[in-house]
Amino acid sequence: MAEPFKNLIDAAAVQAIAAHVQRGWRGFDAAGFRAQALAGLDGLELKARVMQVAQALVAHLPADADRACGILEASLGPPGEGDDLGSLRTSNAGLAGWPVWPLTEAVALLAVDAAPERGLAALQAMTQRLTAEFAIRPFFVRQPAVTFATVGGWLAHPSAHVRRLVSEGSRPRLPWGLRLQALVADPSPTLPWLQQLQDDASAYVRRSVANHLNDIAKDHPALVADWLAIHLPGAGAERSALLRHASRGLVKAGDAAVLAAWGLGAAFRGRVELALSPAALAVGEALTLTLDMQSTARTPQRLAIDYAVHHVKAGGHTTPKVFKGWVLDLAPGEARQLVKRHAIKPITTRRYHPGAHVVDVRINGQVLAEAGFDLRV
């Protein structure tokens, strides 16, 4: 079994933080910091661990935000190069990788009100050793003017990690992050940033732009449909891949304008039948979907085929969850069989309940076949 993420912030990480902060400031009470940071740490989940260590840092650093940020910056190791920060590790040269996360949150606690410009400068440095995408969000909420002005100046920064922070840190609905409700309501302030970054040389940056646009699509689907209409025609392979990823939620939702932009707007002409096996299964097992299709068209058909599992909820009603299936070209008169294995496995964001479940198949946004299975829990 994989090591739980929460163990990335453990006693060893706390010890490394203590050692490198003390290296930059001899007056640092490393023992006091460790005692506060480690108290009950093993019983906490990841984000709670991060915040406990951050609060312990704040308690043992100077109250002056400028001085505290300078001490934290002095504890950092060399910045990462290229797109990949996954190989960065704390070393004798300084902190890098997961131990940097509590440092970013400490900066937010110390500087968001007292010295926002200084705090943003520290986050710019720290994001090159891990990421500051979570810690920068309070700055957007509480200091929007200085934050938008500062972050907008990072668009041409030589580090891909800083350029990515422009997009990732301002995502309206970043998972695990503070929701930026003002940008949920009106995403227009970040659109010029996304337009500039969508053709960035770094795949890491472009992936963030795609996810940012997908966030926007959840609240403003027409805006993303318009974005495709403007930016998809004549797009090269890299921008096309970005836009496809950005519009994945709207494709799965059967948005007519977005399907049409990808040449997937026409209704399927033909016959389709869905079979599920086994007819009954338990959580932890897998369901096999078999889809038999027969085209009756005289011309090729471009098809986006997704499926939705209608999960039974605690009250007995059902809600659909759409999953990605296939995108394919079906020749005139062609018959084809498609098979997919769908695991019914426990995940933290879904609780399974027993009962009759339905699976439907959606072709170019239209539900054209369905079948059922019984789930035992």
Results as ranks from 00 to 15, higher is better:
residue 10 D to H: 09
residue 12 A to T: 13
residue 12 A to V: 13
residue 15 Q to H: 13
residue 19 A to W: 10
residue 20 H to V: 10
residue 24 G to T: 15
residue 25 W to S: 12
residue 28 F to Y: 10
residue 32 G to C: 07
residue 37 A to Q: 01
residue 38 L to C: 08
residue 42 D to I: 07
residue 44 L to P: 01
residue 45 E to W: 06
residue 48 A to D: 11
residue 49 R to C: 01
residue 49 R to Q: 04
residue 54 A to D: 01
residue 61 L to D: 04
residue 62 P to F: 13
residue 66 D to N: 08
residue 67 R to Q: 10
residue 70 G to L: 07
residue 76 L to K: 03
residue 86 G to K: 06
residue 106 A to Y: 09
residue 107 V to D: 01
residue 107 V to A: 02
residue 113 D to L: 05
residue 114 A to D: 12
residue 125 A to G: 08
residue 127 T to F: 02
residue 135 A to P: 02
residue 140 F to A: 02
residue 141 V to L: 07
residue 151 V to P: 03
residue 166 V to E: 00
residue 170 S to K: 00
residue 171 R to E: 02
residue 176 W to G: 04
residue 184 V to L: 06
residue 185 A to Q: 11
residue 190 T to R: 07
residue 191 L to G: 02
residue 192 P to K: 14
residue 196 Q to R: 11
residue 199 D to C: 07
residue 199 D to G: 08
residue 203 A to Y: 02
residue 206 R to I: 05
residue 211 N to R: 08
residue 215 D to L: 00
residue 216 I to N: 00
residue 217 A to N: 02
residue 222 A to H: 14
residue 225 A to Q: 09
residue 225 A to G: 03
residue 229 A to P: 05
residue 239 R to Y: 06
residue 247 S to E: 12
residue 248 R to K: 11
residue 255 D to H: 15
residue 256 A to E: 15
residue 258 V to P: 02
residue 259 L to Y: 02
residue 261 A to G: 06
residue 264 L to R: 00
residue 265 G to N: 08
residue 265 G to K: 08
residue 265 G to Y: 03
residue 270 G to T: 07
residue 273 E to S: 11
residue 278 P to M: 15
residue 283 V to W: 00
residue 286 A to C: 11
residue 289 L to S: 08
residue 293 M to N: 05
residue 295 S to V: 02
residue 297 A to V: 09
residue 298 R to L: 15
residue 300 P to H: 04
residue 300 P to Y: 05
residue 306 D to T: 05
residue 306 D to H: 10
residue 307 Y to G: 03
residue 308 A to T: 13
residue 308 A to I: 09
residue 312 V to R: 00
residue 320 P to W: 03
residue 323 F to L: 10
residue 326 W to Q: 01
residue 328 L to S: 05
residue 331 A to P: 10
residue 332 P to I: 14
residue 338 L to Y: 10
residue 339 V to D: 09
residue 341 R to K: 12
residue 343 A to S: 13
residue 346 P to D: 13
residue 347 I to M: 14
residue 347 I to F: 09
residue 348 T to F: 07
residue 348 T to M: 08
residue 349 T to W: 05
residue 351 R to F: 05
residue 352 Y to F: 15
residue 353 H to C: 12
residue 353 H to L: 05
residue 354 P to W: 12
residue 354 P to Y: 11
residue 356 A to K: 04
residue 356 A to W: 05
residue 361 V to I: 14
residue 362 R to T: 12
residue 362 R to N: 13
residue 363 I to K: 15
residue 366 Q to E: 15
residue 367 V to F: 06
residue 369 A to K: 13
residue 371 A to Q: 11
residue 373 F to N: 04
residue 373 F to R: 04
residue 374 D to W: 12
residue 374 D to G: 13
